[in-house]
């Protein structure tokens, strides 16, 4: 486990005869920012879903801070300190931005038991100040009293991520944080997210299709193809890999040499 905050061994997921992920072994040291790339269906989201407990792995183990979390329910994993955001922002549309944040902060502060949560008031000075700090940190304070249903896509994504880190996780998985965002806004959004997560000292794994963003924000890149990791190195090295260029980034056409490189 060698100081890794997240350690994955021989992870495999099959749906009937379809292999969605196999032979995945990765160690993530604390505070690293890991980009995850791959074409649609390469197993990126399956990987994220297994780590966050949304899917139970068919084989292999997942350790978080030296504790085996393989197959635990997502709620327990969240409570242990691994949180996630979603490709489609998951917020509470009927509530305002600040109400969303207060709900997230209050749940994060409380316990897993619903009975304990039934005796804890939602409104507390601590939850309020945490929510205020979060909307400032993620630069959405301007929208604080807007209902989440009316938010522009980028703000909704930021809110989703802000809510995901309300419970003070040590690891955060971002599933396509920039999907559905216009090209002009992508970098700005990622700047806000990444600097906020640095402030909070969170280890980040993010799924991303835009290679420029991966190159700029990741310390390390995992390239998925057909359920396996075909490259795991620094961004420049991975993006220069002929297999990655052929199968994922599409910067080079597929040829025989690439396969033997």
């Amino acid at each position: 486990m060698s100081g890794a905050i997240l350690s994955v061994r021989d992870l495999e997921k099959t749906f009937g005869s379809v292999v969605a992920a196999r032979d995945i072994s990765i160690d993530v040291p604390p505070l690293q920012t890991v980009g995850i790339i791959g074409a649609n269906g390469a197993g990126k989201t399956t990987f994220v879903n297994m780590i966050t407990g949304h899917l139970r792995p068919s084989k292999g183990t997942i350790h978080f801070e030296d504790r085996d979390i393989t197959g635990l329910p997502s709620r327990t994993i969240t409570r242990l300190g691994i949180s996630r955001s979603f490709q489609v922002a998951q917020v509470f549309p009927s509530l305002t931005v600040i109400e969303n944040m207060r709900a997230a902060a209050a749940i994060g502060r409380g316990k897993d038991s619903v009975i304990a949560q039934a005796m804890t008031p939602l409104d507390s000075p601590q939850a309020r100040s945490e929510a205020d700090a979060a909307v400032d940190l993620f630069q959405i304070a301007r929208y604080r009293d807007a209902r989440a249903a009316t938010l522009p896509q980028g703000v909704r994504k930021l809110l989703d991520i802000a809510m995901a880190v309300a419970g003070h996780p040590r690891v955060l998985l971002l599933d396509e944080p920039t999907s559905g965002i216009s090209i002009e806004e992508k970098f700005g959004l990622m700047d806000v997210v990444m600097s906020a997560l640095k402030t909070r000292k969170i280890t980040v794994l993010f799924v991303e299709h835009d290679m420029e963003i991966v190159g700029r924000f990741a310390d390390r890149v995992l390239a998925f193809y057909d359920g396996t990791v075909i490259a795991d190195e620094k961004p420049q090295t991975v993006l220069a890999n002929p297999k990655v260029q052929a199968f994922i980034s599409g910067t080079k056409p597929l040829n025989e040499d690439a396969l033997h490189a």
Binding site: Q90, A103, A106, I115, L122
Partner: peptide
């Protein structure tokens, strides 16, 4: 006014988010 009682609208809005917040 409790955390659990205030989840009525959030639960109607988005059960997934409630689960992934840890309830």
């Amino acid at each position: 006014r409790s955390v659990a009682g205030s989840m009525a609208i959030p639960m109607r809005d988005n059960e997934i988010r409630v689960e992934f917040l840890g309830l």
